[in-house]
Write a protein that binds this DNA or RNA. Structure first.
Lengths: 219, 219
DNA sequence: ACCTGAACACCGTTCAAGT
DNA sequence: ACCTGAACACCGTTCAAGT
């Protein structure tokens, strides 16, 4: 998902304080270069993984020199952080519409599908690597948490609406429940990738069964 | 958890076919050296992470030369694989006893506690890195899956017993339910590490609420 | 300002030489 | 057989020099 420069400026941009990147004159060129490098890096990371892919490969793929790359990203970890930040929130709009039209659980399963499809396409290890890098490195996780929070807020709103409709148990704390759902989604995706199970439909029905029982109104 | 040489030989040992390691004469020395290297690596990985820790550091910590290390492990990934394999199943015995005495869900929360404590102690990134490495590299994941299967089998047996007692919904498929519980455990641990939430009690109650609702008998 | 690419520092792995 | 440690191949990052 491409994001406008305005959107970049609004959300937490970890590069603002970087002295190395402070003297970029043309913001449009900067955005184009970042996009160019990120696209190249995505291709390389998917092919070989974050730690296997080399900066030389990314430079070749982006048709740029190493020196130029480091004008726009301060490190390899910075690139993966930007990629992850960019990918999050892609499905938020689709989720919101689906939640209004088909209910919370149906919308949840729609998000689950697009998430599980990434694992089936072989992005599982990359997602785990991003996770590891984010847990280890605050510089990676901080901007990611900002984006994550935005998604969580959207899901919380939809969950509260579903509780008001009686679709979801009203005694659940909306924030905890949302975080739990996000956690189970990631957990199921990672575990299935670990077990080499690539059936997306099976993953969705596994997640759906869990979500339905968790969210079901008690009496 | 230290495992006997016999146990090593029984479970899937990925080194058997390695030509480099074929001519180890004294199996007792080999086991001692492997232990020595793994303990040193655990210390280094915990301090600095899998990719940050260098082989030189591990060699220094283990008081062994680089050449000697490579007699017992074929690569850095091989070491993390052996560590992960070694750590799995540590709690299986404790779980089994607790399941018989205090019921399935209580035993589950006991396992959850020791798992979440690892995250609180700062092993979250390492667990994610092991996950990533296992997803990416079959040589890492194969022995891990063997150990994982053994744990799953134990939990399945306890789950079936709990279903027979009416403690857990009998319509749940035991294998799917067990895998789902493992996935949610990992997912909650990783997500909380990502969010920098280190409260173990909160993690357990989050997991317990999910597990209780998921497993509760329907009518 | 923006870029290039050689140079630097470092790290995983190997291998000739020693006991 | 078991070990050492220098050497090798490679990679992330920097920086002097060019436009």
């Amino acid at each position: 998902m491409r994001r406008s420069i305005a959107a970049q400026a609004v959300s937490g941009n970890s590069r603002l304080g970087d002295p190395n990147l402070a003297r970029l004159a043309d913001p449009e060129l900067a955005e184009r270069r970042r996009r160019q490098i990120m696209d190249a890096a995505i291709a390389c990371f998917r092919r070989r993984g974050f730690h296997q892919a080399t900066m030389a490969e990314i430079c070749a793929e982006a048709e740029i020199s190493a020196g130029a790359l480091y004008r726009y990203f301060s490190s390899k970890a910075d690139i993966i952080g930007a990629i992850a930040e960019d990918k999050r929130g892609e499905n938020d709009e689709a989720f919101m519409r689906a939640a209004e039209q088909h209910g919370f659980i149906a919308a949840l399963c729609l998000s689950a599908r697009s998430f599980f499809e990434k694992f089936a396409e072989g992005d599982g290890a990359l997602i785990a690597e991003i996770m590891a890098e984010a847990i280890r490195d605050n510089a990676v996780s901080e901007p990611l948490r900002t984006t994550d929070s935005a998604s969580v807020q959207i899901f919380i709103r939809a969950l509260v609406a579903a509780q008001a409709r009686g679709e979801v148990d009203a005694t659940l704390d909306p924030e905890i429940a949302t975080n739990t759902l996000f956690a189970t989604l990631e957990g199921i995706g990672l575990r299935r990738a670990f077990c080499r199970e690539t059936d997306v439909e099976a993953a969705i029905s596994q997640f759906r069964a869990l979500a339905e029982r968790y969210l079901e109104p008690r009496k």
